[in-house]
Amino acid sequence: MKITLKLFASLAAHLPPEARSRHRVELELAPGATVADVIRHQGIPPGQCAIVLVDGAWVAPPERSARMLAEGEVLAIWPPVAGG
């Protein structure tokens, strides 16, 4: 199945070089793949995944290992951000 992975800010470094400027890549996943599987496969430290959305819906850290992805979904991840 295919999904779109979007990584923002410093996490874009975990995308293939040709995809970094667009902040997105299409991934082919095995059926039953979870959000946590994608995070692990891309080499993203889980602690750097502050905001995780699937098709715009928040996925809390305890749910990431159980939340299976489906064909055509968009997984978007942002690192922690600081403000003032």
Rank of each mutant, 00 (worst) to 15 (best):
S65E: 15
P62R: 02
P62S: 04
A57S: 13
E71Y: 02
G32R: 01
P80I: 04
P80K: 00
A50K: 14
G32P: 01
E63Q: 15
P46C: 07
V74L: 06
P61E: 08
V52Y: 10
E63N: 13
P61K: 10
D55L: 09
L75M: 09
A57N: 13
D55C: 09
V35Q: 10
L53T: 09
A36W: 08
S65G: 15
W58T: 14
I77N: 04
A66E: 14
C49N: 08
L75G: 06
V38L: 12
G84M: 02
I39G: 08
L53F: 12
I77T: 06
G84Y: 02
D37S: 13
A70E: 13
G32I: 02
V81L: 07
A57F: 11
W58E: 13
G56H: 07
R40L: 13
G32S: 04
R67L: 08
D55S: 08
A50H: 15
L69Q: 02
G83L: 05
V74E: 13
L53P: 07
R40T: 14
A66G: 08
C49P: 09
V38F: 11
M68C: 12
G83N: 05
I77G: 03
L53G: 04
Q48Y: 11
T34L: 05
V54K: 10
M68Q: 15
V52R: 09
R67C: 07
Q42H: 11
R40M: 12
P45T: 11
G72L: 03
P79Q: 04
V81I: 12
W58M: 14
A66I: 06
V81A: 03
I77A: 05
A33L: 01
G32T: 01
V59H: 01
P46M: 12
G83I: 02
P46L: 10
W58Q: 14
P61N: 08
C49K: 06
V38W: 12
L53K: 13
E63V: 03
G32K: 01
I39N: 09
L75H: 05
A33T: 09
V38C: 11
I39L: 14
R64H: 10
T34R: 06
G84P: 04
A70C: 06
R64G: 08
P45I: 11
V35R: 10
R64I: 07
V81G: 00
S65N: 14
R40P: 06
C49H: 05
L69H: 01
P80A: 02
P62F: 00
G47A: 10
I51S: 12
P61Y: 10
A33N: 02
G83E: 04
V35Y: 10
A30C: 06
E63G: 00
P46W: 11
I44C: 08
V59R: 06
V35F: 12
C49I: 07
A76S: 15
A76V: 03
A33H: 01
P79W: 05
C49A: 15
L69N: 05
G47W: 07
Q48L: 14
V74T: 15
Q48D: 14
P46T: 10
A50R: 14
A30R: 15
V38G: 11
G56E: 05
S65P: 00
A36G: 03
